[in-house]
Design a protein around this nucleic acid. Structure first.
Lengths: 342, 342
DNA sequence: AAGATATGCTAAATGGATTTAGCATAAGAC
DNA sequence: GTCTTATGCTAAATCCATTTAGCATATCTT
């Protein structure tokens, strides 16, 4: 167990072991084209490198090349909460595929920590920066000009930037279409967004979700039994709105929920009235969080494609596609058991 | 907006600007004791550094010092699922406090990827390695001997290692004590662990949770109305067991659930019978996942202290406390609304 | 046989920060 | 006035991998 001070194997060690120069070793190990080193020497160097377990020192390589093969992920709460954890999966997978590692930092929601975190990343010379957000607000990030290639995921900045967002432009239409497939005549909308109209740019995703939803509802012949605006999108508020709705009159054929947590509250209120989603009425939701599959019956939901968004951000970064453009990622409908069969 | 190629500011630039040597700049900026540089020179260098926005190049520092001020976190699923995300919070917070950054990699549950990930981290010369696990199994990790200081969080290896685990040795006692406080005479245990006896080392945490629970129940005068062994700890199984229990006979005064997901199923089954946790009976659970607060009423649960575990791992690493010891972190009881008042 | 090409390889510079040994000059000792 | 000590600072080595320019020797031309 030579676990202690396993002396670093450097390129010089490999050179000595193979009887070649350091230059030759570097050339060979990096498969440089146009070098005229003999096959025999190549073999010897490769063997020696393997024998000694040589791994080039990343710091030395970075120093020389100015590249670190490292991406920085700074998030407000992403790594730290369960909501958007898929974003990390996507980033990690895509980065690994392209031979990059990921450095993470959190601002824990404190805006002033963002600049500090970015400086940290700049200091560590990351090749690119991903700014990941829990909710897709537009904000005034005051990103310090570090010259680092940067992509925002699930958020926008006041100044133009490369951003990846869920495609909410048609998510509402998709929801309404799915509801129509069940043969429903009436719908309720639980969790309409307060600021949708007065504050049209702050929450691009949410605004679009509801705009798209309302447009589609208008075009359809569906009777809209109400829009319940909620303080917060949580189970308690979803429960209260639904309980209210059910005392007011007969239940709708379908309920569209702002997100899965709201849907959870909706389920609780329905259960109290003996109403079973998927049988007595349809419930459709957005986000596809983990609780969607915990609910009974399991909840059909239109997914926030965090994983794909994360992966796309990495690709944009590494391919240098950094025009100040909003990239949209499709939101798939995850079919489960809460929609009535026709 | 000189966003483009903001030429790196090096120590040489600061030296030139302040009319001193690079050596002097380094000495001053690092507050080296015992140097005899004049106060005036010190001032000039500091000013120049600030003026130019100098940040030392991390790669160069690493190359020189052999330290990277970087910690590696390799997890099976931690970063990527919501369950243990608190672990990252703890690690990030503690690392940042001590001036370290965190590099992450995932094995996505594939054991063969572990060795590769560790090599990656070794190549990047991290100062320490944290191996984080979703479930606290003991496994044969075959950790390659890289000489890196390593701490396991929420898991054990076949060979001795420094590990951080939740203190489940008394979590069961705490649960029983809390149940007794409600004046309960009878309990049901939903989600007993199948392998607890025949496989005592594989799941240290879970085994301990149940051993501790059974010991405490035995010592108490509580009537145990049954132990339901579940295939899997999910809402569906928790629901089924509870439904079964309720048809079999009168409901217990208290239900102890193996975890919050089980409790969610328990709540569903209770609701169907018109039984309200916290009023008609007590429900106590383990883990304190996010859904504990989504349930109605909110669930009292004994928390898996991921955040503290992550932070402790960082401290052990940076303080060099690397004896092959199991460190236990207390599990706090998070009081909510599912326990009856006496 | 002399000059031109090709072949196989290496010396040395480079990137940026840190650290050690030691050079000047000034101040103090006697 | 010489010798010692203190003061203020710097040259140069070091960490390791990469890359460019170019040195030998061998092979080919005519």
């Amino acid at each position: 167990m030579n676990t202690q001070k396993a002396k670093r194997v450097t390129i010089a060690d490999v050179a000595e072991a193979s009887g070649m120069s350091r230059a030759a070793v570097s050339l060979i190990l990096n498969n440089k084209p146009g070098t005229r080193l003999s096959a025999e020497a190549t073999e010897r160097v490769r063997a020696a490198a393997k024998e000694l377990g040589y791994r080039p020192n990343a710091a030395a390589q970075s120093l020389r090349s100015g590249k670190t093969r490292t991406l920085g992920l700074i998030s407000d709460q992403v790594t730290v909460t369960r909501f958007a954890s898929g974003m990390i999966t996507g980033i990690l997978r895509a980065a690994e595929e392209r031979g990059h590692t990921v450095l993470i930092a959190e601002t824990f929601g404190k805006p002033d920590q963002l600049a500090e975190a970015i400086q940290q990343m700049a200091h560590r010379d990351v090749d690119g920066l991903i700014l990941g957000f829990m909710d897709s607000r537009k904000r005034d990030l005051k990103i310090p000009a570090t010259g680092l290639p940067t992509v925002l995921v699930n958020g926008l900045d006041d100044s133009p930037c490369t951003a990846v967002l869920p495609n909410e432009l048609d998510s509402g239409a998709r929801a309404v279409h799915r509801v129509l497939e069940t043969g429903a005549k009436s719908v309720a909308l639980i969790g309409a967004h307060q600021n949708a109209e007065n504050n049209p740019v702050s929450y691009p995703s949410i605004t679009r979700r509801f705009t798209s939803l309302r447009n589609a509802l208008q075009e359809s012949k569906l009777e809209v039994l109400g829009e319940w605006v909620l303080e917060d999108w949580n189970p308690t508020d979803g429960y209260a709105a639904t309980a209210q709705m059910l005392t007011d009159g007969h239940p709708p054929d379908a309920v569209i929920c702002a997100n899965d947590r709201v849907a959870m509250g909706v389920f609780q209120a329905l259960a109290e009235q003996g109403l079973v989603p998927g049988k007595d009425l349809s419930v459709l939701s957005f986000d596809d969080e983990i609780i969607a599959s915990y609910l009974r019956p399991q909840l059909t939901s239109i997914r926030l494609p965090y994983e794909e968004m994360g992966a796309l951000a990495v690709e944009l970064l590494l391919d240098g596609k950094l025009d100040p453009v909003e990239h949209q990622v499709e939101m798939p409908l995850i079919e489960r058991d809460s929609m009535k069969a026709r």
